[in-house]
Amino acid sequence: MAKIKTVYYVNQFFGQEGGEEAASTGIKVYEGALGVAKSFAEAYGDDCEVLATIVCGDNYIAENLDEVTAEIVELVAGYKPDLFAAGPAYAAGRYGVACGSLCQAVGGRLGIPTVTAMNELNPGVALYRKSTYIVSTDANARKVKTDTAKMARLAKKLVNKEHISSPEEEKYFAKGYKRNVRLERRPAKRAVDMLLNKFNGREFITEIPLPPKEDISRPAAIPDLSKATIALATDGGLYPAGNPDNMPSANADRFESYDISSLDTLKEGEWVIKHNGYDNTFSNADPNRLVPVDSMRVLEKEGYIGKLYDEFLATTGLICTVENATKTGKQMVKYIKERDIDAVILTST
């Protein structure tokens, strides 16, 4: 039986170069399996042959991720492997990002299965979970053998093109695909059962997990609004009639800003909603229902707020991926920070 040719990637620490002081070590290639690569190969079985273990310092790759990734992919390609594995990176951010980046690039270039492993705290998970299989591990390297064995088991299934079960069963991070499954009980029954379990304090498993909650501290309060400049923003997709900026009707990854400095109200017909996710009739009939320019203007004249900012920000949030919403959010942050804006009212539909 032909052996499964494997190339393995580890950082300076697992490559026995040293700790943080060796993090700038450049790329080194060892023939055969080194360290965790050996445990991986043993767990996989006799039919796995690690042709090379590639070692690279975390800083060396993190500081030049694209270039170093490309360089290592070239090296990997030279071996014409059947499988590429990297890590486990546990909660080590630079290492996790390196493993994810390499798995994504190797998989994309060579079309072979790639596997890595890390902890949910590792930023590599959010960045690369869609591009490669990332086995879930603890935050620290206490169970290296178990973790490499989990990687090996999943890798073997991928190589043999066996059915991969759910992320929960196989212990990897969901890649974001929806797979149709046939269940005994209809959705209505499942939903009511879930609700009853929740109501009665029993355990229940959601079918639509939301992104993990992150504790972000509350931005400072504005006790005196009469001196504050407030900007309006919406993800309800309100744009000037004709949609001059060609904003999408779903999943936008950007926003646009529109001048309202001379307006006391948003008139019907001059502003039109481009959003396929809700009944637009009411807010098209009176756009102030979505972006309350008329009431803000009154409150500005009253002196209740200092100023309504001269432009409002608009994007379309429908079926928006977390990545795109985050991207749009970061662009808004930049816009706001560069201007004299104290706070934002963001209306959602």
């Binding site: 992104p211 992150e214 972000i216 501290s217 509350r218 931005p219 400072a220 309060a221 504005i222 923003a233 993800d235 994007t315 949030g317 928006c320 977390v322 919403a325 985050t326 749009t328 959010g329 970061k330 808004m332 942050v333 706001i336 920070k337 804006i341 104290d342 706070a343 934002v344 009212i345 963001l346 209306t347 959602s348 539909t349």
Partner: peptide, 19 residues
């Protein structure tokens, strides 16, 4: 998610939402 980014940057924001 947009509000979260604003808050992360320390910008006060009120999210007006139904859900």
């Amino acid at each position: 998610m947009i509000s979260k980014e604003l808050e992360r940057a320390g910008i006060p924001v009120v999210q007006v939402a139904n859900m």
